[in-house]
Computed example of a mutant assay.
Amino acid sequence: MANVKWIIDPAHSEIQFKVKHLMITTVTGYFKTFNLEVETEGDNFETATKIMFTADIDSINTNNEQRDTHLKSADFFDADNHGQLIFKGNRYEKTGEGSAKLHGDLTIRETTKPVTFDVEYAGIVVDPYGQTKAGFTVEGKISRKEFGLTWNAVTEAGSVVVSDDIKLHGEIQLVRQG
């Protein structure tokens, strides 16, 4: 069976993160610039030999310019020295009808840790323009401190300002090439 290359359709995909602020509300942010390439045998994602995702740190958007600037600073992502978040997938494991686990290595600020994401596979369709597309919802959670994002402050009452847990969520549409 021939190798198939898939690339992300950025117009129909989004990558977001959520973090608790003051432990009472959740702030949502997005990466506006990202890339994903996948190589499979035929249309079977369990055979993926390449899963490579990158997000540009400079593209972070939380709908607050001051907060975005702080996230890009050395207190957090240090965009000047570490321009990309990188995920290299090494195994797509089907766990049920339409569900899977995506195992791989996530790199933030030159720190690489193994992570596993839950995947909901929506299937493959041909769009009105004749393009073959595959759809996925990807979810997971990481500890930001494990990746060197340790900045925090404490309120007068002793509450932390930013939680350690970061929830990641992706709506992914891939386009089959060739």
Score class of each variant (00 low, 15 high):
I24Y: 13
E156G: 11
E146V: 02
V27H: 00
V119N: 09
T33G: 02
D43Q: 08
Q173F: 04
Q84G: 10
Q16V: 12
D75P: 06
V154Q: 15
V138A: 11
D43E: 05
E146W: 04
D75E: 10
L22E: 00
I124K: 14
E120N: 14
K20I: 09
V162A: 12
K167T: 15
D80P: 00
E93V: 12
P114A: 13
D68K: 01
R176D: 01
F76H: 04
K72T: 05
Q177C: 02
F76Y: 08
S99W: 04
K133N: 07
V38D: 02
L174I: 03
M23A: 10
F45A: 02
K133V: 10
S73M: 03
T25R: 08
L168T: 06
V154W: 08
Y121W: 05
N35D: 15
T111V: 15
T40S: 06
P114I: 00
D75C: 10
M1W: 05
A55M: 11
R91S: 01
I60R: 04
P114T: 02
A100E: 01
R144M: 07
R176H: 07
L102G: 05
V125D: 05
R109S: 11
K141L: 14
T107M: 04
D118P: 07
D56P: 03
M52F: 08
L102Y: 01
T111Y: 00
T137G: 12
D78F: 11
K32Q: 15
K20C: 05
I7G: 03
H21M: 14
Q66Y: 00
K50Q: 10
T40C: 12
Q16R: 14
T33M: 02
T95G: 11
V161R: 13
T107D: 00
T150R: 03
I24L: 14
F31R: 06
R109Y: 08
K88I: 13
S99C: 07
K5C: 03
I8S: 03
G98N: 12
Y129I: 12
F136S: 01
G148M: 08
K94D: 00
A153D: 09
V161A: 14
K18N: 08
A74W: 07
N44G: 02
I7K: 13
H82K: 13
T26C: 05
G104A: 04
Q84V: 15
D68W: 04
I124A: 11
F17T: 02
V125K: 13
I172R: 02
G148H: 10
A11N: 13
K145C: 00
I24S: 11
T137Q: 13
I57R: 07
V161D: 11
D118N: 14
E93Q: 15
I172L: 06
L168Q: 08
R67W: 05
I8G: 01
D68V: 01
G140V: 00
S159E: 10
E120P: 04
Q131C: 08
T112V: 01
T25L: 09
Y129R: 12
S73Y: 07
F45M: 06
T62H: 08
T155P: 02
T155K: 12
H82N: 14
L85M: 15
S159V: 13
Y129E: 09
G140A: 06
R109D: 07
H21D: 11
A79N: 08
D80V: 13
K72D: 01
N81G: 11
R144H: 05
A11G: 10
N61F: 12
S163K: 10
S73G: 04
T95V: 14
E97F: 11
H70V: 03
I108A: 03
N152L: 10
T49N: 12
N63I: 11
K18E: 10
I57C: 04
I60P: 02
